[in-house]
């Protein structure tokens, strides 16, 4: 490997690391802000998690979550932070996809695309 491509590889890894750190830190900040407003609002209110009822529909889908977060509803803000967290590894896969395409590595580009589409379907689909 020539020093030039070694350099490029190091830069890519640095960017990838920065992407992961930024995603997790941003998610933690949003969850923390939502969490503080959640505690202020609900305080010592003891929610019972003993029986599974499932979340309300608005907290299950991206559209509903971002609408609630936009109106500064504490549960919506936390959930939006969690969506940012789930999106972080997905962004990481998208990044690798772009890197394989730039290397003209079509086979691994295809593998990565399969993973990316599966992840997008899981988060956005239905």
């Amino acid at each position: 490997m020539n020093p030039d491509s070694e350099n490029k590889k190091g830069r890519m890894q640095g960017m990838l690391g920065a992407l992961l750190i930024t995603g997790v830190a941003a998610a933690a900040m949003i969850v923390l802000i939502g969490g503080i407003s959640y505690i202020v609002k609900y305080g010592a209110f003891h929610q019972d998690y003993g029986v599974f009822r499932g979340e309300p529909l608005s907290l299950r889908h991206l559209g509903g979550i971002f609408r609630l977060a936009w109106s500064l509803e504490s549960r919506g803000i936390i959930q939006a932070g969690l969506v940012v967290l789930i999106a972080t590894p997905i962004a990481r896969v998208a990044f690798s996809f772009a890197a394989f395409l730039m290397d003209r590595d079509w086979m691994y580009g295809l593998f990565t695309l399969v993973v990316l589409v599966t992840l997008m379907y899981s988060l956005v689909g239905r």
Partner: peptide, 28 residues
């Protein structure tokens, strides 16, 4: 691990398994 978990987390979100009031203190 993160990529694998992201795949099922999307499904969990739609299934109503992820409660913000519980996930918030656990994640932080």
């Amino acid at each position: 691990i993160g990529v694998t978990a992201a795949a099922s987390a999307g499904a969990y979100l739609h299934m109503g398994y992820i409660d913000p009031g519980l996930a918030m203190p656990v994640m932080l």
